[in-house]
């Protein structure tokens, strides 16, 4: 029995891992395809029907390419950088509840790898660790562009982590728990946190754009100024890891946003559905709803990328420190006032 539980957990971990990799893989395809659509083009359409096999072709290309390690780079750290980047990107998905417990036969299986009681903080920790991959890689390359990119990434991540944390605090005041599972369960039906915390959500979203180094905050790797940013010296699959980590990060932060503010796997009328289709199918619908939310966030990420131009560095810092942090603090105070007088 014990062994079976461990086996199920293991399968769940593998499945989530695979899903996040596949989603990241197809995000690269979606990025190119959506970019094309936003610019009245066609996008990749050669590999397979509609270019569906393009990510596989890209992956094969990445693996086949020549591996170059610069002579002046510091050997081990040069390898540690991308490994750390992809590792931190992958372990973030462990605490996200993907769906309600699902009943198969007489067993009830949790669709969450682990429900630790400090789930949000765990995600924060993983995110803050992610910057090391970039920093170590940038420094180990022994290239000034890489170093500049790495330093930009580090300062950007630190700055936006502050306002991200502050925006979360207002949410935590309402939910009263740090466990992602409980937070999701509180948003049953349509009681999504976005209705109570619109400002907090906007701040959180802007910060997650900055944390994932996505446009308009993609200064660490802006080609026009820094050649390629922190991965200038990287080639082959190490470069692939960096690019891949970015897409996995995007997937995870979309999932976090969906969980924290948009109700996760909850949707209006879920009780009615659950009563009609039984305890096996209903959670699966919930999972589908969750993924629909995640994908719409990924779509939004890409939509923003092809709309808003990149910030200048001082504007970035200005936005982070002088706009978002005061806003987040104001949000906390406001939430406190509302909670005191209307409860």
């Amino acid at each position: 029995m014990e062994l079976l539980d461990i086996g199920i957990k293991f399968i769940l971990i593998v499945v989530i891992f695979l899903i996040s990799l596949v989603v990241a893989m197809y995000s690269t395809y979606a990025e190119r395809k959506l970019a094309a659509f936003f610019q009245d083009r066609v996008g990749p359409n050669r590999a397979g029907p509609f270019g569906m096999l393009q990510p596989l072709a890209d992956g094969a290309k990445m693996f086949m390419k020549e591996e170059i390690i610069p002579t002046r780079a510091s050997g081990l750290l040069f390898i540690v950088g991308p490994s750390l980047a992809i590792m931190t990107a992958c372990i973030g998905s462990a605490v996200i509840p993907w769906g309600q417990p699902i009943q198969i036969g007489s067993r009830i299986i949790d669709l969450q790898v682990t429900d630790i009681n400090v789930g949000i903080l765990y995600i924060f920790g993983v995110v803050s660790l992610g910057v090391y991959g970039v920093m170590i890689g940038g420094w180990a390359s022994n290239n000034k562009y890489s170093l500049l990119g790495a330093i930009r990434a580090a300062s950007q991540n630190i700055s936006y982590e502050v306002s991200m944390g502050l925006s979360i605090i207002a949410l935590l005041m309402i939910t009263g728990t740090l466990s992602l599972k409980e937070i999701t369960e509180q948003q049953h039906g349509w009681h999504w946190n976005i209705l109570k915390q619109p400002l907090g959500f906007i701040i959180f979203m802007v910060c997650s754009f900055a944390e994932t180094n996505r446009s308009p905050f993609d200064l660490p790797e802006c080609e026009t100024e820094l050649v390629g940013g922190y991965h200038t010296e990287y080639s082959s699959m190490k470069l692939g890891f960096y690019l891949f980590a970015e897409y996995i990060n995007m997937f995870i932060s979309s999932a976090v946003m969906a969980t924290l503010y948009w109700g996760g796997y909850n949707y209006p009328g879920m009780d009615w559905v659950a009563a009609h289709v039984g305890p096996t199918i209903a959670p699966l619908i919930g999972v589908a709803v969750m993924f629909a939310k995640v994908f719409s966030f990924i779509f939004f990420f890409m939509w923003v990328r092809w709309t808003i131009p990149r910030f200048r560095y001082d504007q970035l810092m200005d936005l982070g420190w002088r706009t978002l942090i005061p806003l987040a603090i104001a949000n906390i105070v406001l939430t406190g006032i509302v909670m005191t007088f209307f409860k």
Binding site: I116, N117, V118, L121, Y122, F124, G125, V127, S128, L129, V131, Y132, M135, W139, L147, A150, I151, A154, S155, N157, I158, E161
Partner: peptide
């Protein structure tokens, strides 16, 4: 002490040491 663990993780590893590294690299 899970909370202390995570806070140690975020604050020391995630923020303060990044700043250290930052200064050292520069």
């Amino acid at each position: 002490a899970q909370f202390l663990a995570v806070v140690n993780f975020i604050v020391y590893m995630g923020a303060i040491m990044v700043l250290f590294l930052f200064v050292m690299m520069l």
